[in-house]
Amino acid sequence: MVSLNMFFHLTCQSWQFEIVNEMIELIDVHKAFAGKAVLRGVNLKVEKGESVVVIGGSGSGKSVLLKHIIGLLKPDQGTVMVSSIDLSEVDEDGLNEIRKKFGMLFQSAALFDSMTVWENVGFGLKRHTLLTEEEIKDTAIQKLRLVGLVNVADLMPSELSGGMRKRVGLARAIAMEPEILLYDEPTTGLDPIMADAINELIIKMRETLNVTSVAITHDMKSAYKIADTIAMLYNGEIVAKGTPEEIRNTSDPVVRQFIEGRAEGPIVLEGVER
């Protein structure tokens, strides 16, 4: 049992560090859409400063899982805790306060296409701080520089390439100096060089901003590179969890099939006949 091994390993680690500081905790989270179960009892803990990558096939519910962490979706059953606060027990204002701790990079960047790049990056600042327009623009330009973009502040999102959009999305996510960053498939749809550049950025964010992060991906190269811990979502549950090294050497047939990218194996592809 791979997962047992890994839990044991993790427990040892926690003992070593003495203080267990759970930033995010999902307990037995269930979610179904129109009767179709997507999450069937997800348990996941993310510690402060940790970088967790959740891997899983397309349509396995990775995005749904991520949206539960920031309260965009509510579990049918189970609990989502963020810094020891149960998201189901806070009201709308409370939820917004918690959301200010988060930055989220969406799969397609989800930039506001009616606004310029700097207005996108400065959106949170404009809504939640008393900074002047000029100060916001300066901050936005500085965040853009942090993600490697210069001279784009006054462009519209539609004028940018896919990789640049993701960078702008990242700049917007870090603009309010969040404690937690969520990444939805940060490298999907990018060429290998751009993908690696985004991986480097994610590592840099972690080192310079000292954030806790949860990324979801099916790009194993990216997962190995940015994760402290990799967890695999399959059939609506976390079926394995461990360090990149442990995942790489696992004997769990489901995980092996996924990381090796084989069509044959125990994983059943929805709607595909075998």
């Binding site: 920031i70 309260g71 965009l72 959301r99 200010k100 989800a110 930039l111 296409d113 959106f123 809504r127």
Partner: peptide, 9 residues
């Protein structure tokens, strides 16, 4: 983008 609005509180 509507989800993004929500994540930006």
């Amino acid at each position: 983008q509507i989800d993004a609005l929500e994540t930006l509180a």
